[in-house]
Simulated scan of single mutants.
Amino acid sequence: MEFASDNTSGVHPAILEAIARANAGPAPSYGADPWTARATALLREVFETDIRAFLVATGTAANAFALSALAPPFGTVFCHREAHINTDECGAPELFTGGAKLTPVDGAGCKISPEGLGKVQADFVRGFHQQAPAAVSITQATELGQVYSVAEVAAIGGFCRARGLSLHMDGARFANALATMNATAADLTWKAGVDVLSFGATKNGAMGVEAVVFFDTARAERFEYRLKRGAQVVSKSRFLGAQMAAYLEGGLWLENARHANGMAARLAEGLRAVPGVRLPLATEANAVFAVLPQDLHAHLLAAGAHYHAWPGDGAGPEPLPPHEVFVRFVCSYATAAEEVGALLEQARRFTRGGG
């Protein structure tokens, strides 16, 4: 019963096979290989526009280097207080921007809004005594599993354009967000005002590859120098290119995401029917956030369920009472319906007094 993270799943067989095929014979290095060229061409097809794309090994690298192209060392990037770049990347954005500051913004569901951004930016009145506002970063889907609609992204994009700010999207789970919507990848990114996207693949079936996708291609000038200096230019680049090409080929990325989202929806529906369990947030992608009774939580862990108690108070304004715990379950492309059923059966059995 594995629900700790979509990072715990293995590599999708089609991607593993692509890596093995790419292993045969010699190939040009440092991004000059045909697999990387194919991945870039497929990204152009997905986003329906000219782009500059750079493959890197980790999501932290994708975010940190993307922001380094948008914010000067004396600048600031507005992001949600719980954004991954602010809480889980060990200062990498600050390091690779050369010292730019992250300025947190609050918002329900880990979403930020033009109103919230406006309130925070209104405090930037000290001129060169204060960091210069440079960019906004949003996470799709958010750290609480919520999805920005096209209209919400466009509203933030409009805010940025009106104030001369760049817009970055952390898309570690971009596929999961898009799979829930009646929209295209283009609608959700450059058409809504996104300048640079950190396009995730690792959480959705790859071994380890992300793409920094520039829609404003002028921002990509000399970006390869940033990557080289930061040790993100991979010599055997074909293995990054092979992963990304296989991920995109035939729509595998969306197929994987739809499966993960479907398992999350099934889990959410089942948990909602368990007495004493509350779901304070809509399940919009592949993560389910729930409030469990402490004794049920202890039982599930003892029964072998892997998931995490989550920081916070249950996504509500009031702290949880001591007998409850806020938790996160994450489904992946590899989550089986049997795993979801087993966890729900454990929960139902315990609440019936059969634990």
Rank of each mutant, 00 (worst) to 15 (best):
S235R: 15
G276S: 06
H299D: 03
L279S: 04
A290I: 09
R222C: 12
L279Y: 08
L281W: 09
A218W: 04
R238Y: 04
E224D: 15
S237C: 14
A305C: 13
D216W: 06
M207C: 07
A298H: 02
K236C: 02
P275R: 11
L301V: 02
H259T: 09
L281Y: 13
V212W: 09
A246Y: 08
A264D: 09
Q294P: 01
F215D: 00
L279V: 10
A211V: 10
A220I: 03
R272M: 08
L254E: 15
K228I: 09
L300W: 00
K228C: 12
A265S: 12
N204Y: 05
V213I: 15
H306Y: 03
A245M: 07
N286F: 07
K228L: 15
L292K: 00
L296H: 08
R258Y: 03
A264M: 05
L254R: 13
A242C: 05
E210G: 00
L248Q: 04
K228P: 01
A242T: 01
H259E: 02
T202C: 10
F223C: 06
V234W: 15
K228D: 14
R278I: 00
D295S: 13
A305G: 02
G276H: 08
E249I: 11
K236Q: 11
R278S: 06
R222K: 15
A211N: 04
G230S: 13
E224T: 10
R222F: 14
L248P: 05
A201I: 01
G230R: 14
G230Y: 02
N204S: 06
G276T: 03
A211M: 04
R272N: 11
L240Q: 14
A268I: 11
L281V: 12
E249D: 15
A287M: 13
G205D: 04
A265P: 03
T283N: 09
A206G: 14
F215P: 00
V233Y: 04
A201T: 11
K236N: 07
Q243Y: 09
N261T: 10
L300V: 00
L300I: 00
A265L: 14
A231I: 03
A218N: 08
H259R: 11
A231L: 13
F215V: 02
T283G: 07
R238P: 07
V209T: 14
V291E: 12
A206D: 12
L281M: 12
